[in-house]
Design a protein around this nucleic acid. Sequence first.
DNA 1: CCTAGAAAGTTGAAATTCGAACCATCGGTG
DNA 2: CACCGATGGTTCGAATTTCAACTTTCTAGG
Lengths: 159, 159
Amino acid sequence: METDNATPRWLTEDEQCAWRTYLAVNRLLTYQMEKDLQPFGLTMNDYEILVNLSESEDLRMRMSDLATATLQSKSRLSHQITRMENAGLVRRENCESDRRGLFAVLTDEGHATMKKVAPHHVASVRKHYIDLMTPESLASLRATLKPIAEHLRTQRGKP
Amino acid sequence: METDNATPRWLTEDEQCAWRTYLAVNRLLTYQMEKDLQPFGLTMNDYEILVNLSESEDLRMRMSDLATATLQSKSRLSHQITRMENAGLVRRENCESDRRGLFAVLTDEGHATMKKVAPHHVASVRKHYIDLMTPESLASLRATLKPIAEHLRTQRGKP
DNA sequence: CCTAGAAAGTTGAAATTCGAACCATCGGTG
DNA sequence: CACCGATGGTTCGAATTTCAACTTTCTAGG
């Protein structure tokens, strides 16, 4: 008989507003970042990978680790790296210790691109996000979101 | 000579952390919401359209308005509605006053689906977002994000 | 009235993403 | 050592998204 018909706890006015605002910022911001990166021929995805690689030991990362770090499926990353490889930003290299494995390695060109684009991207992030809030707001936001990120990380299987 | 080489204002440690956390929540949350909707055969996109329609006068909206409301391109929305039409959730109807125009109208089935799914979706939003913060955090977050949404809305052209 | 844009939507092809199936190698166990 | 389930990655086909035409209808100016 139990067909799960407990009265749902609907969102209050405020909660609803908060949620929708969040969703809106989410999309609008993504759109804007994407747009600001476009003149350099990069997507957010490209950029994030460049960041990860350039912050890594030897400018390289195992495909798996990169997939985990950027929260993408293995399949998607594989395609993504192929495209970036064609664009000359990245190169695949075999892993000695595990012959199944591959590294994605930042090329010189990739590194140069990174250096050129980073300032613009940072400016964009500031202009459309960071600089629009007070340091207190930022701190509060971070404190609120951090545990949520943790929670969500534990929830998910392998995307 | 001006080649735009002012020293960029890099992000501070805290800012960097806030930004990355935001990005992470962004993706993880989207992923989770999507996943929780999957058993009902809906995507976030589907759901959002159902919400918009069910909150509208006569359960209908002009394609353009719907596109604007959901922040999608006309093209994307058109395909989207076609799919939902095939799924029986929505139906297209001509506009009397403007013969170029079309309405997307919620069907009975669409309305029923909405009613069935909404409680689960709300529960999901609570579980993975709203209920993970205090009311104060939520209020603060809303207050911070609201102006950002405004700013971003003014920035963008037609996606 | 006529015409040149603009606006509303659709369409089709190309690019991206997803999911499942697949291949090869690893690591542990009997 | 030989087997077997896990890991690391790629690949293929289907679904989704994007981008650039294209059609039809409006609207405003002359």
